[in-house]
């Protein structure tokens, strides 16, 4: 009674379990501005969904979750449309380049090794840096609160990085993000994330968020809203392409996930609103590090089977 058949996945699932899974990942999406594909796809595979169908149907549900999340963040003034569009254009270009790179790597025969190493290094590097930086941020804010008599901190010396960015052409003001930088920067960073996402076979939300925080110097709450806005368009494109070329989108699975994730994204936005930027960052960093440790364990421990089905992330 509580099961539903998924015609494209060719399996049935427990409705409540998938609803709960959608809710959990939607919650993370609303809080952190990530699509959650790096968590959702392995979990769906555990439910008996073929890897290719899991990844494509997840893209379909992210369309719903990110619409819900973007709307909630839009009302809070957290979406920088101009920045989002530039990152998106860069992401599409980067994705196209990345697909070609992966073809060359596959032809050379060492694609899987490079993908696994890139994945672990990216997760470990991004997660580790973000964790330490936000930990310092939390300590600092605590110290400031304790020392009420402290005088205004001296103006920070402008870094070489910041001076270099100011010299680039096409300088523009991004009002919502509160930064003035060259439009080439988000475009270039979008390309970078697009390339990495295509190589690793993921949406790239967990790379995009730290890049917006650390390299574009955007406030964390605007980062979350803008990331969701950008993910929405990426996933619309991926869903249509996967449905047309590979017939791997299971609409029933996507709808079951959507029911949970759209609610989860709204609740997540409310939860995120109550938290400080550094608290958000440290939680996301912990999540990324957990996934990194799990992947590393998978690489170090003897697998149960010496063969595996192809496909998926």
């Amino acid at each position: 009674m509580w099961h539903m058949y998924l015609p494209i996945a060719g399996n049935s699932v427990n409705i409540l379990a998938i609803f709960g899974l959608g809710g959990f990942v939607g919650l993370l999406s609303g809080i952190f501005g990530v699509g959650g594909g790096f968590l959702m796809t392995p979990l769906l595979i555990m439910f008996g969904i073929p890897a290719t169908v899991a990844a494509a149907s997840d893209s379909n549900q992210i369309v719903g979750a990110s619409t819900s999340g973007t709307l909630a963040h839009w009302r809070l003034g957290n979406v920088d449309v101009k920045m989002g569009i530039l990152l998106l254009i860069g992401g599409v270009l980067g994705g196209t380049v990345g697909v070609q790179i992966i073809k060359i790597l596959r032809a050379m025969g060492n694609a899987d090794f490079l993908i696994s190493i890139t994945y672990v290094l990216m997760l470990g590097g991004v997660g580790g840096y973000m964790f330490l930086e936000s930990l310092q941020g939390l300590k600092k804010s605590k110290n400031v609160e304790e020392d009420e008599t402290s005088k205004e901190a001296p103006a920070k010396k402008e870094s070489t990085y910041a001076r270099m960015l100011k010299k680039l052409p096409l300088q523009s003001r991004f009002a919502k993000s509160g930064v003035e930088i060259s439009m080439l920067i988000p475009l270039f960073l979008g390309v970078l994330v697009g390339v990495l996402a295509a190589i690793m076979g993921v949406g790239g939300g967990f790379i995009m968020v730290p890049i917006m925080v650390y390299l574009l110097r955007m406030p964390m709450h605007v980062v979350v809203g803008t990331s969701l806005f950008q993910i929405l368009f990426t996933c619309v494109n991926v869903t249509i392409m996967q449905a047309k070329s590979n017939h791997t989108v299971d609409f029933v699975l996507a709808v079951l996930l959507l029911l949970g994730s759209t609610i989860g994204a709204q609740v997540g936005t409310k939860v995120g609103k109550k938290m400080k930027g550094d608290q958000l960052k440290i939680l996301l960093a912990s999540l990324v590090l957990i996934v990194c440790v799990k992947m590393l364990a998978g690489l170090l421990m003897t697998p149960d089977f010496m063969i595996a089905m192809k496909g998926g992330h």
Binding site: L71, A243, F251
Partner: peptide, 19 residues
């Protein structure tokens, strides 16, 4: 193609409705 577009439109509407 139509199946893909339908899947996206319904997901968008679900997201908007929930919002």
């Amino acid at each position: 193609l139509w199946y893909g577009i339908m899947s996206v439109v319904i997901a968008l509407m679900a997201g908007l409705f929930m919002g």
